[in-house]
Design a protein around this nucleic acid. Structure first.
Lengths: 206, 206
DNA sequence: TTTAACATACGTACCGGTTGGTATGCTAGT
DNA sequence: ACTAGCATACCAACCGGTACGTATGTTAAA
């Protein structure tokens, strides 16, 4: 029997991510992660020294990664800043399952930020990188003339993140993808209002 | 020894609200509610038939009440709709403790909506009443000419709720009242944009 | 042979909930 | 007015189950 150390760790991480996303961190059960992976407790505690450490790894290696792939990477590309943001927002998974499960970042922030400073710091890092990425893109858009001159990029970035997370909450509570999609339309509408006056689309005047 | 049935129940409810607000529902400990109130387990299970029932009572009797007092009641008054909304938003508690604790509605939605349909329904009722109250006020404002004619009241109401909850999340994660206050400024700025063009304040033209 | 990578079994603490029991207040019948 | 009898409001002890974590044993690869 060959050993797959790294693979075992990754499987545990993935199962832990699902479990935490479902139940939150405090109520996430080590035993059910074990059951989902057919890994034993000894193996888990060989790879992670505690439940906390496993939770931190989920945040750093799973949730942060998701944010980078969904937001930061697409925002690196060339093109009209507003168009890019609209595209990213529209590409957020909107299936019933995704909407019902909600954003793991949101869940863990609500649950853990006041309780565990190390958890909070790791989540905050993600939020800050996220906002900074948006702000950078908006600044670039301003310099290219595709974003209104009077816009405060940092404020707009936090506003975008807040509305996305806010609608995420409403949709998760409603357990209804339609609520999410209506939210996206409103967010897109707001994003369009960030274009310079009279500029309806990139490179085209009204 | 005189009996204080109603008072005991209310004390349990208050302690349960605090505990749930701190730890979430699943991790809320019955024993710590008991310790906080110096009530015994028998007494608690006399007033509430289960932990679930206690949680539902917290939602219906504590959280819903808070929303009514903070939002619905102030919105009943006469006056410029936008001014009223700005006033309500600014009067949301912004002390460091309040910001760090966050919105209980938000926490419970994130935690419980996918797990317990009865919980979700009770929370949804609060969100819907909240949004409906705002929408009604905006409709009134439209008819009085203090709100832009082209505004969709229901969409704007959900947008307001989403931004409030979104900034609430960011501020709770940051554990920083400044983040919340900056969010409020942005929300107020957005609310002002709902006034008819050129109308900077109620009853006054620019 | 050494050690990385597990497996098994168990320890301790806490969980929500139930139990049998008790003391008090209320009410109906005389 | 008195009291029997019932409902209310509680209490202390305990239950089975589950939680995270650990100690020790085993196996396969180098």
């Amino acid at each position: 029997m060959i050993r797959h150390s790294e693979r075992t760790r990754e499987r545990l991480l993935q199962a832990a991510f699902c479990e935490v996303h479902r139940s939150g961190f405090q109520s996430a059960s080590i035993d059910s992660i074990l059951a989902a992976t057919n890994v034993t407790k000894g193996a888990l505690y060989y790879h992670f020294k505690s439940k906390e450490a496993l939770g931190y790894a989920v945040v750093e290696e799973k949730i942060a990664k998701l944010t980078r792939e969904r937001w930061l990477r697409p925002m690196q590309g060339e093109g009209n800043a507003i168009d890019i943001l609209i595209g990213v927002v529209r590409r957020i998974p909107a299936s019933p399952q995704d909407v019902r499960a909600g954003c793991p970042l949101l869940l863990l922030s609500q649950e853990m930020s006041p309780l565990d400073e190390k958890f909070r710091k790791r989540l905050e890092r993600i939020f800050l990188d996220w906002q900074e990425g948006i702000a950078t893109l908006l600044r670039k858009g301003k310099s290219q003339g595709t974003v209104r001159r009077d816009l405060n990029p940092a404020e707009a970035a936090s506003f975008l993140v807040a509305t996305v997370e806010g609608y995420g909450t409403l949709a998760k509570n409603a357990q209804d993808a339609k609520v999410w999609k209506a939210g996206i339309r409103n967010i897109v509408g707001w994003l369009r209002s960030l274009r310079p006056a009279g500029q309806l689309r990139a490179g085209r005047l009204a």
